[in-house]
């Protein structure tokens, strides 16, 4: 495949970036999108050009590190996948592909396509945990009866990998789906109920402080989420927030 890549280049957080155009030949349809970028970077290094910086780690759709806004969509045109799981067979020979970083005030660009998603970490620190005794006398979790339904829903919420595609794709750059998943995974379990009130209030407060936008229920986040986190989690977070407020 022969492609034309329009890639956002930005030296650092303070620099003003711009798009650079790179032609790329010899791309296999079986390559992953990140492997295609590896090929490009090899060419750029050979030419003495600074390679394109982009986030990646496991390349198995597990870690949530890879980001990228490809042709106007978070993680590209495929559904239920991260960028590392996107394959070049989704594109046609001769295509021009526009690649941008995830855009949100709360996700500042570090370099090129790499963004700082530590705002998600700070939201987690605000309440995305349970306080348990880890001295060796910890109660066996299986000793607490939990319904299959609640366990399944909690597990579904816990599959969120914090990639930030929900924020990137939302027209409001809202982080509601991420925060809702993190609130839900505990709210559904008895171990999480103890600190449920403080958790939802503190996590929502931190989310607002980070500068994310407001949810307008467009549902784009649910569709783009590589883990299929449902909007039901946002409704649950709204209920948790209302319960905690009154």
């Amino acid at each position: 495949m022969k492609l034309t890549l329009k890639i956002w280049r930005q030296k650092n957080n303070q620099a003003s970036g711009k798009f650079e155009t790179y032609p790329l030949d010899g791309v296999s349809p079986d390559m992953s999108f990140l492997e295609m970028l590896d090929v490009l970077n090899n060419e750029l290094i050979e030419k003495g050009i600074d390679p394109v910086a982009f986030d990646h780690d496991c390349r198995e759709g597990i870690c949530g590190m890879c980001s990228l806004f490809i042709n106007g969509e978070a993680h590209g045109p495929d559904r239920g996948v991260t960028t590392c799981q996107l394959h070049m067979r989704k594109f046609k020979d001769g295509d021009t592909i526009t690649i941008e970083p995830f855009r949100a005030k709360a996700f500042p660009v570090i370099k090129d396509l790499v963004v700082d998603r530590s705002s998600f970490d700070r939201i987690q620190h605000a309440g995305g945990y349970i306080s348990v005794n880890t001295s060796g006398n910890t109660q066996d979790a299986n000793a607490i009866p939990i319904s299959k339904h609640a366990a399944d829903e909690a597990m579904d919420a816990a599959t969120c990998i914090g990639c930030g595609a929900c924020v990137a794709t939302c027209k409001n750059a809202s982080a509601m789906l991420f925060v809702a998943a993190k609130v839900s995974q505990y709210a559904l379990l008895p171990q999480g109920r103890v600190e449920a009130t403080d958790r939802v209030l503190n996590m929502v407060k931190q989310m607002d402080l980070e500068g994310f936008g407001n949810c307008t229920n467009t549902g784009a986040c649910e569709i783009e989420c590589p883990k299929g986190i449902s909007l039901e989690n946002i409704a649950r977070m709204n209920r948790e927030f209302l319960k905690a407020s009154v």
Binding site: N71, E100, K105, K171, N172, A173, F212, G213, G219
Partner: peptide
């Protein structure tokens, strides 16, 4: 507030791919 939360706009944004025009 929502416009401010985006910061820099996307050069290419395919909003119709995952949300209705009305929403």
């Amino acid at each position: 507030q929502n416009k401010k939360a985006r910061g820099v706009n996307y050069a290419s944004y395919n909003g119709g791919a995952n949300a209705s025009w009305a929403s």
